[in-house]
Deep mutational scan, measured.
Amino acid sequence: AQASVVANQLIPINTRLTLVMMRSEVVTPVGIPAEDIPALVSMQVNRAVPLGTTLMPDMVKGYA
């Protein structure tokens, strides 16, 4: 199954992502693919992302 990017902590709005904030997990619905984690580093989220939330393309500025 495809692993997705999941928030490893609460990520406040406009925060630049770092590796420690993200983990890969097989979840439904599928979000951003886990292999994109390196590309997500330093991108900003456009909303607060609670712990355990799957990151979707529309949550990350410049990803989609």
Rank of each mutant, 00 (worst) to 15 (best):
Thr18Leu: 06
Ser42Phe: 14
Met22Thr: 01
Lys61Tyr: 08
Asp58Lys: 05
Gly62Asn: 08
Val5Lys: 00
Met43Thr: 05
Arg16Ser: 14
Pro50Asp: 10
Met56Ala: 06
Ser4Arg: 01
Glu25Pro: 01
Val49Pro: 01
Thr15His: 07
Ala48Pro: 08
Val41Lys: 05
Thr54Met: 03
Ile13Cys: 15
Ile37Leu: 13
Pro33Asp: 05
Thr54Glu: 02
Gly31Ser: 02
Asn8Lys: 07
Ala1Asp: 15
Val6Gln: 03
Ala3Thr: 07
Leu17Phe: 02
Tyr63Ala: 04
Leu19Trp: 13
Asn46Cys: 05
Gln44Ser: 15
Leu40Val: 08
Leu10Ser: 11
Ile37Arg: 11
Gly62Pro: 09
Met56Arg: 10
Met56Ile: 11
Tyr63Trp: 15
Gly52Arg: 04
Val27Phe: 02
Ser24His: 10
Gly62Val: 06
Val6Phe: 02
Thr54Ser: 04
Leu17Ala: 00
Ala64Glu: 10
Gln2Phe: 10
Arg47Phe: 07
Pro57Ser: 09
Leu55Arg: 01
Gly62Phe: 12
Val30Asn: 10
Glu35Ala: 11
Met59Asp: 15
Ala3Leu: 13
Gln44Arg: 13
Ala39Tyr: 14
Ala34Cys: 05
Gln2His: 07
Ala7Glu: 01
Pro12Leu: 13
Ala48Phe: 12
Glu25Gln: 11
Ile11Gln: 01
Thr28Tyr: 11
Pro29Asn: 05
Ala48Trp: 08
Gly62Arg: 07
Arg16Gln: 14
Arg47Glu: 07
Gln9Lys: 12
Ala48Leu: 09
Pro50Ser: 10
Pro38Gln: 11
Thr15Val: 10
Ala1Tyr: 11
Met21Lys: 03
Asp36Glu: 15
Met22Ala: 01
Val20Ser: 08
Ile13Pro: 10
Thr15Pro: 00
Ser4Tyr: 03
Ser42Gln: 08
Pro50Glu: 11
Val20Thr: 13
Gly31Gln: 02
Val27Glu: 01
Arg16His: 14
Val5Cys: 04
Asn8Gln: 10
Ala39Asp: 05
Glu35Lys: 09
Gln2Met: 06
Val60Ile: 07
Ala48Ser: 14
Thr53Ser: 13
Pro33Arg: 11
Val27His: 04
Met59Leu: 05
Ser4Glu: 00
Pro29Leu: 05
Pro29Phe: 04
Val60Trp: 02
Ala1Asn: 08
Gly31Ala: 03
Thr18Cys: 04
Asn8Ile: 06
Ala3Met: 14
Gly52Gln: 03
Thr53Pro: 01
Ile11Asn: 00
Ala39Arg: 15
Arg47Asn: 07
Ala64Ser: 15
Pro38Arg: 09
Asn46Gly: 06
Met56Lys: 08
Gln2Pro: 15
Ser42Val: 04
Leu10Asn: 15
Val6Gly: 00
Thr15Leu: 05
Ala7Asn: 01
Pro38Val: 10
Met43Tyr: 11
Met21His: 07
Ala34Lys: 07
Ile32Pro: 01
Gln44Asn: 07
Leu55Tyr: 01
Leu10Lys: 10
Met21Glu: 00
Arg23His: 05
Val60Asp: 00
Val27Ala: 06
Leu55His: 00
Gln2Leu: 13
Val5Ala: 07
Ile37Trp: 03
Gly31Arg: 01
Thr53Ala: 13
Ala39Met: 15
Arg47Thr: 13
Ile37Glu: 03
Gln9Val: 13
Thr54Asn: 02
Thr28Arg: 03
Pro12Gln: 14
Gln9Asp: 10
Gly52Tyr: 06
Val5Met: 02
Val5Phe: 02
Val20Pro: 06
Ala3Gln: 08
Leu17Ile: 13
Val26Ile: 12
Val26Glu: 12
Ile11Phe: 02
Gln44Gly: 05
Asp58Glu: 10
Asn14Phe: 13
Val5Glu: 01
Met22Asp: 01
Leu19Arg: 09
Val45Asp: 01
Val20Gly: 09
Ala7Asp: 00
Pro12Glu: 14
Met56Ser: 10
Tyr63Val: 03
Gln2Trp: 14
Ile13Gln: 12
Val60Leu: 08
Met43Pro: 00
Gln44His: 15
Ile32Gln: 00
Gly31Val: 02
Met21Leu: 06
Arg16Ala: 15
Ile37Phe: 03
Thr28Ile: 12
Leu17Cys: 02
Ile32Thr: 01
Ser42Tyr: 12
Ile32Leu: 05
Ala3Glu: 10
Asn8Phe: 04
Leu17Lys: 00
Ala3Gly: 12
Gly52Leu: 04
Val26Gln: 07
Gly52Met: 06
Pro12Phe: 08
Ala3Pro: 11
Pro29Cys: 05
Thr54Ile: 09
Leu10Arg: 08
Arg16Val: 15
Ser42Pro: 01
Ala3Val: 07
Ala7Phe: 02
Val49Thr: 05
Leu51Arg: 11
Gln2Glu: 13
Pro12Gly: 07
Thr53Phe: 12
Thr28Met: 10
Asp36Ser: 14
Pro50Gln: 10
Ile11Glu: 01
Leu40Met: 09
Ile13Arg: 09
Ala3His: 09
Met59His: 12
Ser4Leu: 02
Pro57Tyr: 09
Ile32Lys: 00
Val20His: 14
Ser24Val: 11
Ala1Phe: 13
Val27Pro: 01
Ser42Ile: 03
Met56Leu: 12
Gly31Ile: 02
Thr53Leu: 10
Asp58Asn: 10
Leu51Ser: 12
Arg16Gly: 11
Glu25Leu: 07
Met21Asn: 06
Glu35His: 09
Val60Phe: 06
Pro29Asp: 05
Pro33Ala: 07
Leu17Val: 03
Pro38Asp: 09
Glu35Tyr: 11
Thr28Ala: 13
